[in-house]
Design a protein around this nucleic acid. Structure first.
Length: 865
RNA sequence: GCGAACUUGGCGGAAUGGUAGACGCACGAGACUUAAAAUCUCGAGUCCGUAAGGGCGUAUGGGUUCGAGUCCCAUAGUUCGCACCA
């Protein structure tokens, strides 16, 4: 071992040492009831699914959160920073099927491995609050929450058409169907009718929408996404009376109800279109083979993006006709159309070809009448005709009886008033949001605490029997739900009448588990789902950090749950997350040869390109991709920690890229981070050995002290702004200033160096906490740990500049600079500026029209000639 | 189709309307070394010029302003979200 190495910083020894000291001091433990003399700060990162391996995305996520937590703690906040596991889910069952491991054991093993990695990274987490959603200590309380919501009318059981994933053999919520495919399996989703449990999220549609306005520390795009998902639209429901059906149809409905946002265009109606799965369509199909054929074709086509793109608007004329309430003498045909969605509105629309492009296309295709009812500005009623483009902008209503001459807004208002007066409709607000179906036909989830009894119906499991635990002895030898296959579990007696009954064998959607964990963290040992005092004093989460992929599902469900928990008395807040930050992904170069993707470990740089490490064969450089197993471009955090240490890994993921953007993982970047750590250690070591602790300040150290205090200011601002990359850059500058000071011998430089070194340690601490402790221990061996210290304070006297370099512009172009005292007045600055040699030369022969002096900023001369 | 965001050196990026390119990576030169690694120092937007200095530069074209990477309008490209929503 060389001397150099023995003098260097040994993270292998230091990191576990400091982690043990922090644990010993319970440095990160929070109280359920936060201290009244300190402001509270709850920082939370989205808890991970225990897949078995922590990945770099997690490291970035938790490093960001840890910077906030450590910084806020140093700033005097009482900080809650917990960690847990989103531990139910399908991969555990797949592992059971594939490898014969029990899902519970598989999950707990994974948690142990990932917890170990998190602890090696030295995050300032309160491990005493750790929760795992798969443990009865957690999910029993969730069952209680469900039952309380049921009692409050927020739960419903009903039969409905559900999204059935034929690969995962389960139901999915609408939110979990992406482009007509299951979000996890990618399988084409089928429609099935099943009895399901629903949480009535639609009861909160309006408050969930309005609440978005107050979330000013959320990214705007997340708010927009939720707004559109909730999808409020104002319009009217209108019933059209059915005329006597042709013989052969067994139609017992007497009207078709539509939803429209344009009741003002009712006079332009030329057809009504219903969805293929509309009840009326089914009745028509019962007596008409052609109709049945058309409906089946529509269902085959599906709703995937490509299908929608390719599908032409097609329809089938049922032969039925309805009357127009505004024009009682007229009837229009009822078509079944492939573009009408049963899920939205009433599953039926009226077609006004003049005012809607899709209706116009449909009318042209099937040769339906196009009656002009909206006159665009500047057109004459006598000459205007509707060609290929519908009038979707503003216009004046005409050919519209009592609505003639009105604009859109006034026309809508009057039309709604009229249908209400006629008793055929009413103004309504329609929502796109659907209730949340939470039944899943899975084993590894929270059991739904319900018993089905022949005579009593669905009966809640009594509270004193909670938690209702999952049985351990299940088999995965055939498809479907193992709970349902279990020989005895589902056979119970009715809690109400004692008769033989059947236990519900569905489990909750795992999104339920993550919809309230942030509240459980505030009092994880409580005997009730929450300790309301703890929940109300810690919540809302001040800073929530996670991936953009949860912009809708998780965040909307959690917002709903918080309101539902308020309704059921478990807490008393509306919004769970005051501030939200969505961090970018980590990307990496990808490599492949003719046999497929190659891992970075199998590849070495060679000249301009890359070759295989084993046989030197050339490798093709692929795109920058999100780290993923399929592209084999992942880098394992444990490997990085072993080679470079936790601090280096943390520092690197915080450097360079702003956290909301994607960042590229590079070997050279990691190496540079490691180098910087060593450099800091050396600088501090030099100070510790060369400068006595009691060294006195003197005028000589002033410029270093200025650098130190300006760094405090700059780093503080950067952390407040959530830009650790800028903080990193400022810390590089301070370390350069400290290195520069080693060369000087002026009076007082020693004390200034000590101050700079200690400040450096305190400022890097949120990012590199272990190294920071080591630095402080070198400088002040007998004193407090960094985690017990306050954030440094920037002294104003060193922030103020002694002199200012002022740029001199001529016509907005920089032509020179001068040094002036701060706040120098114009009558001093302007003559100096004009006299600056280069400026004077450029001004020669010109006339100065205007002299602009912005103190401490700029001088600009406007010239003529 | 609708909506949003983004576009700055070879690369990641910095910049309350006021000296564009901080800081880092990669690169080049030098010091130390028998040598290499490590470390340290210096250099660098681009074009012209020995230099002093100047021209041009923040996707493109316009505008507002004494002054625009930053504000406004249009265009292009990239990315993301939603998508037959009545």
């Amino acid at each position: 071992m060389t001397e150099q190495e023995t003098l260097g910083y040994d993270f292998d020894e230091a990191e576990p040492k400091w982690q043990a000291k922090w644990d010993g001091a319970r440095a990160f433990a929070a109280d359920d009831h936060p201290a009244a003399d300190k402001p509270k700060y709850y920082v939370l990162e989205m808890f991970p699914y225990p897949s078995g391996q922590l990945h770099m995305g997690h490291v970035r996520n938790y490093a960001l959160g840890d910077v906030v937590a450590r910084y806020k703690r140093a700033r005097g906040f009482s900080v809650l920073h917990p960690m847990g596991w989103d531990a139910f889910g399908l991969p555990a069952e797949n592992a059971a099927r594939e490898r014969g491991v029990h899902p519970g054991q598989w999950t707990l093993d994974n948690i142990a491995a990932m917890r170990g990695t998190l602890q090696r990274l030295g995050f300032s987490l309160d491990w005493e609050r750790e929760i795992a959603t798969c443990l009865p200590e957690y999910y029993g309380h969730q069952q209680k929450l469900f039952l309380d919501m049921w009692r409050k009318g927020l739960v419903e059981r009903r039969e409905s058409a559900v999204n059935w994933d034929p690969v995962d053999n389960t139901v999915l919520a609408n939110e979990q169907v992406v482009d007509g495919r299951g979000w996890r399996s990618g399988a084409l989703i089928e429609k099935k009718r099943l009895s399901q449990w629903f949480l009535k999220i639609t009861d909160f549609a309006a408050p969930l929408l309005e609440g978005l306005d107050k979330l000013d520390r959320w990214p705007a795009r997340v708010r927009v996404m939720q707004e559109r998902w909730i999808g409020r639209s104002e319009g009217a429901r209108v019933r059209f009376a059915l005329h006597a059906p042709p013989s052969g149809y067994d139609v017992d409905l007497d009207a078709v109800e539509v939803f429209t946002t344009r009741p003002d265009t009712l006079f332009g109606m030329s057809f009504v279109a219903i969805a293929a799965d509309h009840p009326l369509a089914a009745k028509v199909a019962a007596g008409n083979d052609a109709a049945r054929g058309f409906i089946e074709e529509c269902q085959r086509l599906g709703t995937s993006e490509e299908a929608i793109e390719a599908a032409e608007k097609r329809g089938f004329d049922t032969g039925l006709r309805v009357s127009n309430p505004f024009a009682p003498d007229e009837t229009v045909p009822v078509w079944i159309a492939n573009f009408v969605l049963m899920d939205y509105g009433t599953g039926a629309v009226f077609g006004c070809p003049c005012g809607d492009q899709r209706d116009l296309d449909f009318a042209r295709k099937y040769d339906l009448p196009v009656r002009p009812v909206i006159l665009p500005p500047g057109e004459e009623p006598s000459t205007f005709t509707v060609g290929k483009t519908a009038v979707t902008g503003d216009g004046t209503l005409y050919n519209s009886g009592f609505l003639d001459g009105l604009g859109t807004v006034e026309g809508k208002r009057k039309a709604i008033k009229r249908v209400e007066a006629m008793g055929v409709g009413r103004g309504v607000v329609n929502w796109r949001l659907r209730d949340w179906g939470i039944s899943r036909q899975r084993y590894w989830g929270c059991p739904i605490p319900v018993v089905h009894c022949e005579s009593c119906g669905a009966v809640p499991v009594p509270d004193d029997q909670l938690p209702l635990k999952l049985p351990e002895d299940v088999t995965f030898d055939r498809p479907g739900n193992p709970l349902d296959h279990h020989p005895s579990w589902k056979h119970v007696s009715c809690p109400q009448c004692g008769a033989d009954a059947r236990r519900e064998t569905d489990t909750f959607d795992t999104f339920v588990d993550s919809s309230w964990y942030f509240a459980r963290f505030t009092a994880p040992q409580a005997g009730t789902p929450t300790d309301p005092i703890a929940a109300n004093s810690w919540l809302p989460v001040d800073q929530y950090i996670g991936g953009i992929e949860h912009a809708i599902l998780h965040l909307l469900y959690a917002r709903f749950f918080t309101r539902a928990m308020k309704e059921t008395g478990h807490l008393d807040i509306d919004e769970p997350f005051g501030g939200l930050f969505t961090q970018g992904m980590i990307t990496h170069e990808s490599y492949r040869d003719e046999n497929g993707w190659l891992s970075p470990e199998d590849v070495v740089r060679s000249g301009e390109g890359y070759v295989r490490r084993d046989n030197g064969q050339p490798v093709q450089l692929g795109r920058l991709e999100k780290m993923s197993k399929s592209k084999r471009n992942t880098v394992s955090p444990t490997a990085i920690i072993e080679r470079f240490g936790a601090d280096t890994a943390r520092w690197f993921v915080l450097s360079d890229s702003p956290p909301e953007r994607d960042m590229e993982w590079t070997e050279s970047g990691v190496a540079a981070s490691a180098r910087f750590g060593q450099r800091l250690y050396r600088l501090v070591q030099a100070v510790a050995t060369q400068v006595p602790q009691n060294a006195a300040f003197a005028e000589g150290g002033r410029s270093l002290r200025q650098a130190t205090h300006r760094s405090i200011k700059a780093v503080t601002e950067a952390l407040e702004n959530f830009t650790p990359n800028v903080a990193v850059a400022r810390l590089h500058e301070l370390s350069a200033a400290l290195a520069e000071a080693e060369k000087t011998t002026e009076d007082g430089i020693g004390a200034a160096r000590r101050e700079a070194a200690l400040t450096l340690a305190l400022l890097v601490a949120p990012m590199m906490p272990h190294l920071a402790e080591e630095m402080v221990a070198l400088l002040e061996p007998e004193s407090a740990m960094v985690v017990e210290r306050s954030w440094p304070v920037a002294l104003e006297e060193f922030i103020a500049l002694d002199s200012i370099t002022l740029g001199i512009q001529i016509m907005g172009k920089l032509r020179g600079t001068i040094e002036v005292p701060p706040d120098a007045p114009s009558d001093m600055v302007l003559p100096l500026a004009e006299a600056e040699p280069n400026v004077a030369r450029m001004l020669e022969g010109k006339r100065i029209v205007k002299r602009i002096h912005v103190p401490n900023r700029i001088v600009n001369f406007v010239v003529a000639g």
